[in-house]
Amino acid sequence: MKKIILALSALCLVAFTSCKEDATKKISEANVAKAAERDAVASKFPVLTFDKTEHDFGEIEAKTQVETVFKYKNTGEAPLVITNIKSTCGCTVPKDWSREPLAPGGEGQFTVKFNGSGSNKVSKTITVTANTEKGSENVKITAFVKPDPNTAKPAQS
């Protein structure tokens, strides 16, 4: 048993020391330069900058549909790709955004439609998922929803 362990140890020693010299010869300066360039580019992200991050519709009647447009710009150093835009509930619907890459300095927009559901002060968050450093950005809509005048009020006793 000791002879087998000694033989395996000697074999491992030879294998590990023989690979060391060959590995250093395989590295080329061109590959090191390419890797450095790739890593420098990989650290550049797009930056999603909005013209406004919150929109207040003010007072609206219940069940009244309203919409607003959020404009944005890529102020970063890499192409911006928006993969999804979603809201916190089905009463707020984001639409009409480009799924194509947006070059640095480029501008785009999307529309948010709110159906006027809820009552009193209503606030909804819209999450924009993109290839930014954080991975997502948020914008918000608010409104004060007045009661629907067509609904019957409960009788007072």
Rank of each mutant, 00 (worst) to 15 (best):
E137A: 15
T75L: 03
A40F: 06
G106Q: 06
H55F: 15
K63Q: 13
G58P: 01
E61W: 09
H55Q: 07
H55R: 05
D39G: 00
A143M: 07
K25R: 10
K63P: 01
A10C: 12
M1G: 09
K3F: 15
K95W: 08
E133A: 13
D22Y: 13
V47N: 06
T24G: 15
G58F: 09
K124Y: 10
D22K: 11
Y72N: 01
I126R: 07
V81Y: 10
K73P: 00
N131A: 01
Y72L: 02
V145Y: 08
I85G: 07
K2Q: 02
T17H: 10
S87G: 14
S119P: 04
K52W: 01
K2T: 05
K134G: 00
P94A: 01
E29A: 13
V69G: 00
D22R: 09
I4R: 09
E59C: 00
Q156S: 12
Q109D: 12
G116M: 08
F114Y: 15
E67A: 14
H55W: 08
A7I: 03
E21R: 13
N84T: 04
F114D: 04
F114L: 03
Y72T: 00
K121M: 02
F50G: 03
G135N: 12
C91G: 11
V81Q: 05
T64M: 11
A30L: 03
A42M: 14
S87R: 02
L80P: 04
S28M: 01
T49V: 06
K134L: 04
K124S: 12
K34N: 14
R99L: 05
K3I: 14
G76E: 02
P79D: 15
T127N: 12
Q65K: 15
K20R: 05
N84A: 13
S136I: 00
V66K: 11
